[in-house]
Simulated scan of single mutants.
Amino acid sequence: MKSRVWLALLVICVNAQAGEEESTPCDNVESDQQTFACAAFNKQTAERELKSAYDDLIQRIRDQYADEGDKATALVGRMDAAEKLWAQLRDADCKVETYAEKPGSKAFQAAWDTCVAQRSDDRSEYLQSIGQQ
């Protein structure tokens, strides 16, 4: 029950942020099936944005240390390691958050997708803040 309320709140937030010119599976969610599709869409979108934020950060590092190749290489290596550890933490946190749902069920998948989307959005914001002046 708690996960459905949480999912409904997420859908409302996403709908409030969506541009009117874009149509998404999160528009006019009225059924469980639409909620599941919206959660999957949010996860895919968040993961795409996370990859973009990470790629942008790596480019900022390379630009910032253009004349210091060793420093750039070292910092990119640290970022790669940090990103792998963060993904492990995200997955562990989402396993905790989805514990009440039956693995393999649509409710579990929607809760998992929602958790991953939220964590990915938070990580994207963090990555975008690194190296900004």
Rank of each mutant, 00 (worst) to 15 (best):
M1W: 10
K2P: 01
S3M: 07
R4P: 11
R4F: 13
R4D: 13
V5T: 10
W6L: 13
A8I: 05
A8Q: 10
L9Q: 15
L9T: 00
L10C: 04
C13R: 10
C13E: 11
C13L: 12
V14Q: 02
N15V: 08
A16I: 02
A16E: 13
A18K: 03
G19I: 07
G19C: 10
E20H: 15
E20D: 15
E22R: 02
S23F: 13
P25W: 08
C26G: 01
N28C: 11
V29I: 15
E30P: 10
T35E: 01
A39W: 03
A40Q: 09
A40G: 12
A40W: 04
F41I: 03
N42D: 15
Q44N: 15
T45K: 00
A46N: 02
E47I: 11
L50M: 01
K51H: 10
A53Q: 07
Y54L: 12
D55W: 01
D56V: 14
L57K: 06
L57M: 01
I58T: 04
I58H: 01
I58C: 00
Q59H: 13
R60E: 06
R60H: 11
R62Q: 14
D63I: 08
Q64W: 11
Y65H: 15
A66Q: 00
D67F: 12
D67Q: 08
E68K: 15
E68C: 14
A72D: 10
A72W: 05
T73N: 13
T73G: 05
L75Q: 03
G77V: 09
G77I: 10
R78P: 03
R78I: 04
R78T: 00
D80M: 04
D80S: 03
A81E: 13
A81N: 04
A82R: 02
K84T: 14
L85A: 14
L85W: 10
A87L: 11
A87W: 05
Q88T: 12
Q88P: 08
L89H: 12
R90H: 14
R90I: 08
D91R: 10
A92C: 09
D93N: 07
D93F: 08
C94L: 03
C94R: 06
K95L: 11
E97Y: 04
E97C: 05
E97F: 07
T98C: 08
T98F: 11
T98N: 13
T98G: 00
T98D: 05
Y99H: 05
Y99E: 02
A100V: 09
E101L: 05
E101P: 00
K102N: 06
P103E: 04
G104M: 01
S105C: 00
S105V: 00
S105N: 04
S105K: 00
K106F: 05
K106L: 07
A107L: 01
A107V: 03
A110Y: 06
A110F: 04
A110Q: 06
W112F: 06
D113K: 05
D113S: 05
D113I: 08
T114L: 02
V116E: 10
V116D: 07
V116H: 07
A117H: 06
A117L: 07
A117W: 01
Q118S: 11
R119Y: 08
S120W: 05
D121P: 04
D121K: 10
D122A: 07
D122V: 10
D122M: 11
S124Q: 11
S124I: 06
S124F: 09
E125V: 07
E125T: 03
Y126I: 08
Q128T: 12
S129W: 11
S129M: 00
I130V: 15
G131Y: 03
Q133I: 10
Q133L: 08
